[in-house]
Amino acid sequence: MTRAGSSIVAKRLGRAGRFLWSSWSGLAAIFLFSVVWQIGHEAYGAFILPSPLAATAAVLQLAGQEANWHTALVTSRRALEGFVIAALAGTAAGIVAGYSAASIRLARPLVTLILGVPPIAWIVLAMIWFGSTDGMVVVTVAIAATPAAFIGAAEGIMTRDRGLDDMARAFGAGPWRRFSTLAVRHVAAYVFPALVLTLGTAFKVAVMAEVLSNSGGIGGGLARARSNLDVSEAMAWVLIAVAALIVVEYGLVRPIHSELERWREAARPWGVRR
């Protein structure tokens, strides 16, 4: 048991190491992007496009003030609240719809409809319904992000392996056990990419809603920077919003996903592994 236990720990450490090591390529991509940015800065001047260094300095300056941390947290909290609501509601509804062919037929056009309404329209509607409050941002985020989670979960349930279902039935599994031991794992593979998408939508919509309704948060900071024509501060707020998204995605969503997809990784030949 101890030997098996230590080998599991070693494997896990190896995977974590690989995950961390892969951040070098991420850094390389960021620096490449900075190069393009710097070229743009040199071509158009500091007023249109401040240099990456200036923007970074502005970020550091903003980060130096405690109030700004609070601002960033407000947006993250709103985005995450909306995301959690969307993820739970979308996934649950998607699972139900996936099991019943009739409801998926009813739901598909509805999803297209909801996806077709631009988030900005939801923001306006939510502003009318809720005013410029916390709840308005959260509701907008939730509405904009739910369809992706819904589609992911429904697809997952619909594409589940009936052969495995029959196998479980042969070994005496009832509907609940079949769902909890087989369908959940299968659905997770579909829901997680959808959730990554949902999370991105959540942050973008949250910032957008804040800009439009001037209800504080990163969007509020952006709106202030715009009225002051302070481009480097605006850039800095954009950077902060992206950083918040990256922290949540790579710190939370990706590790869980790679843990679930371990078996796919195992089947990949050496040399193809990332």
Binding site: L164, G172, R177
Partner: peptide, 19 residues
């Protein structure tokens, strides 16, 4: 009809888990 996400050991133990 093995669960692709589970190891051989977990697959063999599946009926025991159900039991």
């Amino acid at each position: 009809r093995l669960m692709p996400w589970a190891t051989a050991r977990e697959n063999i133990a599946y009926p025991l888990r159900l039991a």
